[in-house]
């Protein structure tokens, strides 16, 4: 069931704008939730409950004076944020969010692109996203930015290994690399968060590190590195890096919902995308909760967790799952 090109066009336009809206309001939600957890009010001046805050932020970022270090490598310095938000946005295209609909005489599928190798595409794009961070930090020619980008790179590649290994168990059980197939498989058997609990934990921890969120926000450790790889970025160029980070977080949560929690299926009532959004928000809330609760790790602790705890755990999980898949 593939859509004609013009349906794909409309759908791509709608979905990317919804994703950007979700990103904009995620910044608002994050500030509100953090504020409440710290007994503050959070943004409440712009509009009711501060709801227009993201729009005010956008205008402010675009109006910022554009200046950058004279010694920065211009082309790379400007391309890096665009590239990092491009890979983040593009990865969302393969996430299935609904069962597909029959509208008038056309079938509209519940995802932008149903690729047979969707999972590989997501991991490939998130690996490519590292280039945005490392090139941006390097090209701005500042020591904090350089250190920050080296850290980002090392952290993201370390956790990428655990992340992809953790998903191996799901691939073994789902018997496909297509996310739609994996969701259908879960609907016909059971959701994978039970049998793949170890995989889920490794996936989530590695995912928090992969998106540079606290407590793994070493790349932007503001007490030591000012702001990490985007120290020399201001205005919308900084905004694009933020966009990349938040959209990565949303995509990763959506991937967790798809791989472990049955995607758009709910325990009852076929609500489709509403179930998907509900589960997505629960996981996004976990990200914020972690940020409000846990202190930042030290860099050697970070590397130790990644290579000596998560990687063996994910590998053993994959082997046990493989044995069970073959035996049962």
């Amino acid at each position: 069931m593939t859509d004609p090109w013009w349906i794909s066009l409309i759908k791509a336009f709608l979905i990317i704008n919804l994703l950007l809206l979700l990103f904009a309001y995620m910044t608002w939600v994050e500030r509100k939730v953090l504020a409440r957890m710290q007994l503050r009010y959070g943004p409440n001046r712009v509009g009711p409950f501060g709801l227009l805050q993201p729009i005010a932020d956008l205008i402010k970022l675009i109006r910022k004076e554009s200046f950058f270090p004279a010694s920065a490598v211009d082309v790379l310095y400007i391309a890096a944020p665009v590239f990092s938000s491009f890979t983040a946005l593009a990865a969302f295209s393969v996430i299935p969010f609904g069962p597909g609909w029959h509208i008038w005489k056309w079938n509209v599928s519940g995802e932008v692109a149903n690729l047979p190798i969707a999972l590989v595409v997501i991991f490939a794009l998130s690996s490519l996203g590292i280039y945005g961070f490392i090139v941006g930090g390097w090209a701005s020619d500042s020591k904090y930015a350089l250190l920050g980008s080296m850290r980002t790179c090392a952290q993201m590649v370390s956790y990428e290994v655990s992340l992809t290994f953790a998903v191996l168990g799901v691939v073994l059980m789902g018997q496909s690399l297509s996310l739609v197939d994996i969701v259908q498989k879960q609907a016909s058997t059971f959701w994978f968060f039970g049998p793949q609990f170890v995989g889920l934990v490794v996936f989530f921890v590695a995912g928090v590190a992969e998106t540079n969120r606290p407590p793994f926000d070493l790349p932007e450790a503001d007490t030591e590195l000012v702001a990490g790889y985007h120290t020399e970025y201001s205005g919308m160029r900084f905004g694009l890096f933020q966009m990349g980070e938040y959209v990565n977080m949303i995509t990763l949560s959506a991937l967790a919902v798809t791989l472990f929690f049955g995607g758009w299926y709910g325990p009852w009532a076929p609500l489709g995308p509403l179930w998907f959004l509900l589960k997505l928000f629960v996981i996004l809330f976990l990200f914020l909760w972690l940020r409000a609760t846990l202190p930042r790790l030290r860099y050697d602790q970070l590397m130790r967790v990644g290579w000596k705890v998560l990687l063996p755990a994910a590998t053993i999980n994959a082997v046990v799952t493989a044995a069970l898949v073959v035996a049962l």
């Binding site: 593939t2 859509d3 090109w5 794909s8 066009l9 759908k11 791509a12 336009f13 979905i15 990317i16 950007l20 944020p81 665009v82 938000s85 491009f86 946005l89 593009a90 295209s93 393969v94 932008v112 692109a113 149903n114 690729l115 047979p116 595409v121 694009l240 966009m243």
Partner: peptide, 18 residues
């Protein structure tokens, strides 16, 4: 066809940040 959809989406994903 699904790759075409991916390309269309990818175009937006590049055009909006740019």
């Amino acid at each position: 066809h699904s790759w075409l959809a991916f390309l269309i989406y990818g175009f937006f994903a590049l055009a909006i940040p740019a």
